[in-house]
Amino acid sequence: MNITLRIWRQPGPGRPGHMVTHRVDDISPDMSFLEVLDVLNQRLTAAGEDPVAFDSDCREGICGMCGLVINGIAHGPQASVTTCQLHMRSFADGDVIDVEPWRAGPFPVLKDLVVDRSALDRIIQAGGYISIPTGSAPEAHSILVPKDDAEDAFDAATCIGCGACVAACPNGSAALFLGAKITHLGLLPQGQPERDSRALAMIARHDAEGFGGCSQIGECTAVCPKDIQLEVISRCHRDVVTALFHHGEQQEGPPEDQTGGNLASGPAGD
């Protein structure tokens, strides 16, 4: 099949970009969307032109690295898949396809279709962990987890942090990502000791990174390749409200920013 790609080309961070039309002929309907970009890049390179920069890693839909806004929809028209798992059979011969990077204030474009998503990493650093002694794996039955909780926690844990929720959100909010992480750890016994501080620290980091507020529109869950449900946002808000009640008297204002604090405050010059 022959298709025409209108791709966002931008030479570098903060530089002006625009849509550039590239024709790609003789491609197989069984190719993935990223393979079409590979083919295009080979041809561009052979012609001495600058290849299109885009992110990808596992190409199995589990790493969260790839992510393109295709025809205005994060990860393209097919539901519940990442861009690498989107195949050309989802399009018709002769289609003109718009390809753009994730767009959000906290996701600056680095080049062409590549954006910097480290804002999500900093949200995780703020509280998306549990403090446990390391060592050999504990006996699985030593901590009992109700089945429903285990399943809900696992569903939330399937979030691969690709950022499609932010790209799709009309408010540029990362509430679905945040909710998935807080639900994942907050439902499990191992996540209880830090449940309050986690909720407060992560939402404070989320807001400080410049993500928008959630207004429950639901575009995030509609484009999520892992089908993370909107309910994780409600669960996150519950944890935040509960934590505010618990900390109400001791704590005034947002909790201390823990981002990188542990790393940055380590012994210097050792």
């Binding site: 209108r6 025809n71 718009d98 009309p170």
Partner: peptide
């Protein structure tokens, strides 16, 4: 601030201006 002032219409593509759902 998070969407450059353009909300859901921040993409060049005009094919999904009404979102998905």
């Amino acid at each position: 601030r998070a969407t450059g002032g353009r909300g859901g219409g921040r993409y060049q593509s005009t094919r999904a201006r009404r979102g998905v759902q």
